[in-house]
């Protein structure tokens, strides 16, 4: 998992590019480097991906390696599993993570368990890419954050890149992973831009995106950007928040997380995922176990509301954390600061 991935020559490091272009470059580089890597899913070829991630890949690699499929989510995942077991390195795409429910047997009962059930004889080195999250009024069946489902399932790695560099490097690392990786791309980030750095830490390493001593904002994916905005707002009031980007939930960098919260004594977990039995619940339990003696306040969870995602823009935006709400919760967490 932590083995270094060799660097290609043609990628424009140091330049500002879109998140989706970073994803495309990662796929392109891996497909150039390894003929076993294939891309398989709905509209990944001629259409270029529902959000344009795979534009141009069909032209470069041909139909044998960029496979448009019928609308058969379970078979897409199942095919990738069988291919991964017999010599290919498939990148399977579910257009929306909501469609994972159609393929949950293949994801959770098959891909996640094959290594274990078969006594370690073989792994399933595949990546399952999917679009997640709110921001485009896509409705209750195209907007969810389902990372908790996958994180709950032993055997699955879960990556949630928030930055352009992570989109590129985490995807390349995921393609090299010997275990199946669920790779969740936030739809509100596809058009976001950032500088592509020439390296990124491996999966399983959390990154502090902003230093701070008063509280720790624990987050990942799109909410990283909301947290950073909130932290700027708070800084103007003299509150310094450390913003921790977990990047992957499995493997999880509990050590970095615990060190930060022990230092600040206060943790605010920010996710788009729903509250009950959601990712924030597990994070809260872990922080409590690791930092009990250091906590000045209860661990707070600012999550998505426990509702299906509504379409109407004000309702949708109101159903998940915003920079304002994060800042407000942070202030309350610091209300008794001495």
């Amino acid at each position: 998992m932590t083995s270094p991935v060799p660097e290609p020559q043609s990628v424009a490091f140091g330049q500002e590019i879109e998140y989706r272009a970073a994803l495309r470059e990662a796929i392109r580089q891996e497909m150039r480097a390894d003929p076993r890597v294939i891309l398989i899913g709905e509209e990944v070829g001629r259409y270029g991906g529902a959000y344009g991630v795979s534009k141009g890949l069909l032209e470069e690699f041909g139909e044998a390696r960029v496979l448009d499929t019928p609308i058969s989510e379970a078979a897409i995942v199942g095919t990738a599993i069988g291919a991964a077991m017999t010599g290919l390195r498939p990148i399977a795409e579910l257009m929306y993570v909501d469609f994972a429910y159609l393929a949950m047997d293949q994801i959770a009962n098959q891909a996640a368990k094959i290594r274990y059930m078969f006594g370690g004889q073989i792994g399933v080195p595949m990546v399952l890419r999917a679009t997640m999250g709110t921001g485009r009024s896509s409705g209750a069946q195209h907007s969810q954050s389902l990372e908790a489902l996958f994180w709950h399932t032993p055997g699955l790695r879960v990556a949630l890149p928030a930055t352009v560099s992570d989109a590129y490097f985490l995807l390349r690392q995921a393609i090299h992973s010997p275990d199946p990786v669920v790779f969740l791309e936030h739809k509100a980030l596809y058009a976001s831009k950032g500088v592509l750095q020439d390296q990124a830490p491996p999966m399983g390493v959390a990154v502090s995106r902003r230093p701070g001593q008063h509280l720790t904002l624990v987050t990942y994916s799109r909410q990283l950007h909301h947290c950073l905005q909130a932290a700027d707002e708070l800084a103007a009031e003299g509150i310094e928040a450390e913003v921790l980007d977990l990047r992957t939930l499995n493997p999880l960098d509990l050590e970095t997380l615990a060190q930060s919260v022990r230092r600040t004594g206060r943790a605010l977990i920010v996710t788009e995922d729903t509250l009950t039995a959601g990712a924030s619940a597990e994070l809260s339990a872990l922080i409590q176990e690791a930092c009990f003696d250091y906590l000045e306040e209860p661990i707070l969870r600012l999550s998505g509301e426990d509702i299906p995602i509504p379409v109407s823009p004000p309702l949708e935006a109101g159903s998940v954390p915003s920079p304002d709400r994060i800042a407000r919760a942070a202030r309350r967490l610091l209300r008794r600061r001495g």
């Binding site: 496979l67 078979a75 995942v77 199942g78 095919t79 069988g82 077991m85 017999t86 290919l88």
Partner: peptide, 8 residues
């Protein structure tokens, strides 16, 4: 479906 992948 795994045999579809193996066939692929």
């Amino acid at each position: 479906p795994a045999v579809v992948g193996a066939g692929l």
